[in-house]
């Protein structure tokens, strides 16, 4: 599982060396940013159902999408937000990459899913995040950068 720490250890192991000062500094850097990430993860876990339903109401409220897919869309948005919660905890994009994005294009193409519903939902969540009542400024920027990462991979 790719995270800030495991990435450093993998590359140290690949060259058979003990963690160097620069390895340790990069790990320390990720610890220094960890509080914002963990706050974002905590708040996301609290608000995950609300974020999902608000985004869903917004996207399906526009009537341009088939309403029959709404439940499945809700399930998927919730799923992706959960993976973002994991990414916030690990401090890397490992969980999204391994469990959300790998194979995503193939599944979407095979099932002819409209990715626009997802993209709009995540954009809605990103643009309507209430700071500071949903989460603090730094936590929100960690959360938003992962939303952007996901949106880019869906686009």
């Amino acid at each position: 599982m790719k995270s800030a720490v495991t990435t450093v250890i993998s590359s140290a192991d690949a060259s058979g060396r003990f963690p160097t000062i620069s390895d340790i500094e990069s790990v320390k850097g990720s610890f220094d940013r960890a509080n914002a990430r963990l706050e974002a993860a905590e708040k996301l876990a609290v608000h995950i159902d609300r974020f999902t339903s608000e985004a869903l109401e917004y996207v399906y409220g526009k009537q341009s999408l088939e309403q029959a897919n709404k439940d499945k869309c809700a399930r998927d948005i919730h799923h992706y937000l959960r993976l973002i919660n994991y990414c916030l905890v690990t401090g890397g994009t490992g969980p999204l990459d391994e469990w959300g994005i790998a194979g995503m294009r193939e599944v979407i193409r095979a099932q002819q899913l409209p990715t626009i519903a997802y993209i709009e939902s995540f954009s809605y969540i990103r643009d309507n995040l209430d700071i500071p009542s949903d989460m603090g400024q730094q936590a929100a920027s960690e959360f938003k950068s992962l939303l952007d990462y996901l949106i880019n991979s869906l686009a």
Partner: peptide, 10 residues
């Protein structure tokens, strides 16, 4: 390979 964070995730 896991660390304390990814252990919690798994």
């Amino acid at each position: 390979m896991l660390d304390a964070f990814s252990r919690a995730v798994v």
